[in-house]
Simulated scan of single mutants.
Amino acid sequence: MFYSRDRVWRRFKSRINHNKGMGSENLWKPEKNWKMVYLRSEKLARAKQLGFPYPRLNTRQLLEKELSIND
């Protein structure tokens, strides 16, 4: 008897084998592509985790920020 392994079969096997070998702690992974992080709050949180300033400020904005702190 001949069984064809078509798209339906591949999707079925993919669904069955999806979680094999993965621990429950690995279910969520942070977004790696910065463009895919949509919300500003998520970008702020992710930038804090990665350790770089966000939003990026140009030289003029940095100077204005320093002047307002010193006043």
Rank of each mutant, 00 (worst) to 15 (best):
H18V: 07
D71S: 10
P30C: 04
Y54S: 01
Q49S: 08
H18N: 13
R5K: 13
Y54A: 00
N70V: 05
K48E: 14
W34L: 00
F52A: 00
W28Y: 14
M1N: 10
S4A: 14
H18A: 15
K32D: 10
W9Q: 02
N70H: 08
P53C: 03
I69A: 11
R10Y: 14
M36L: 14
L62A: 06
H18D: 10
F2P: 05
L44V: 13
K29L: 04
L62T: 06
F2E: 15
S4R: 15
V8R: 13
S68Q: 08
P53F: 05
R10N: 15
R46M: 09
N17W: 12
Q61H: 06
E25A: 15
L44I: 10
W9S: 09
M22P: 00
K48T: 10
N58T: 04
V37T: 07
L62H: 04
L39F: 01
I16N: 05
R5V: 10
S24D: 13
P30K: 07
T59R: 12
P55K: 01
Y54T: 04
N26Q: 09
K65Y: 05
L57P: 02
R5S: 02
F2D: 10
E66C: 00
M1Q: 06
N70A: 15
N19S: 13
M1C: 08
E25P: 00
L27T: 07
I69K: 15
R60P: 01
S24I: 12
K35W: 03
I16G: 00
L50M: 13
S41M: 05
F52V: 08
F52N: 01
E31H: 04
E31S: 02
W28C: 08
S68D: 11
L67R: 11
R60M: 06
Q61C: 09
R46L: 07
Y54W: 15
S4L: 15
V8N: 12
K29P: 00
N17P: 00
L62I: 08
L44N: 06
T59M: 11
R40D: 11
S68Y: 02
E42M: 10
L27D: 09
A45Q: 09
R15D: 02
Y54H: 05
N19A: 11
F12S: 10
L27K: 06
K29S: 07
